[in-house]
Design a protein around this nucleic acid. Structure first.
Lengths: 152, 152
DNA sequence: TAATTATCTACTAATTTTATAGAATTTATA
DNA sequence: TATAAATTCTATAAAATTAGTAGATAATTA
């Protein structure tokens, strides 16, 4: 029941990009140093997000990545699915990678896992990166002294 | 976000034992063949459940395993934690294996993961093996022809 | 005493996760 | 048009976790 490093990095990178939305392309290197994510690993992650249409990229000098859509139209669930595949705890209750379990007809574990999957996706498919930005801002404002930096 | 084979096997074995509650010790071999679980693997699993006080065992002829408590006093969460450790998607929101995340003060991912952890444990710490037994029985009754066997 | 059953210690195999290497391609701009 | 800077692509490697196995030991019953 663990979030992979890959998805964790992806969420952080996505929050970073959402905070800079509409400010042009951001380079991998900038994200990787700011968020302390191994650069080569982050390359793979951002590439995957581009391939599913969450990010746009520009090659060459002054190139980089930016959101393909407004942050309020991208959910955490979409990002996690792009990297880790199905969110469901067992495949027999997955929408995106359904496979029947061995004894589906009377599988009672299935019922419980379905409840859990729904509970998880209720959160992940509802929360957008616009929400995450608000939370970051709230979190920054609450800090005494009002330092201008924030960390994801 | 995947349930391990180990936990899946454990749940199936526990449901099997719950269905036979108060009928004396059940041998590993019987569970392993009925539920199609590799016997040696199941040994490890049942041993782990005994060590945390969920099962009792008897060695020797006519020995075997049985529940240490009534099925309505054992939750799915307790079993999964015994085998896979923490249920929380990231350690910084785990009750049982808490570790601060790198930038906890303003970690907004933490907030979402906390919601998810709560959603998952709401289910897993509420549903007991007595509930699972009822579901199995319901599922059997609904089957046309009323075959007397059930499969988990 | 013999058969049966859990227990224990220690592996091994397979899979998944977490990266890394290096060449190829594209682009801005001096 | 050369150069530097950036993504892209293909491939591999290292590490960690998960899944499963082997075989000897101890306890119990009949």
């Amino acid at each position: 029941m663990k979030l992979s490093k890959k998805s964790d990095y992806a969420l952080r990178a996505m929050i970073y990009l959402s905070m800079q939305h509409k400010k042009g392309a951001i380079q991998i290197k900038e994200i990787s140093t700011s968020e302390r994510i191994p650069q080569k690993f982050l390359e793979n992650i951002l590439l995957a997000l581009r391939k599913v249409g969450i990010l746009n990229s520009k090659i060459g000098l002054k190139g980089g990545y930016e959101l393909a859509r407004s942050p309020d139209l991208i959910t955490l669930g979409e990002v996690i699915r792009a990297l880790d595949g199905a969110i469901a705890p067992v495949d027999c209750v997955s929408k995106t990678s359904y496979r029947p379990c061995s004894e589906e007809v009377t599988c009672v574990i299935r019922g419980v896992m379905m409840e859990i999957r729904n509970a998880i996706t209720d959160v992940l498919d509802r929360v957008t990166f616009a929400d995450m930005c608000s939370r970051v801002k709230d979190s920054v404002e609450k800090k005494e002294g009002g330092v201008l930096t924030y960390t994801i």
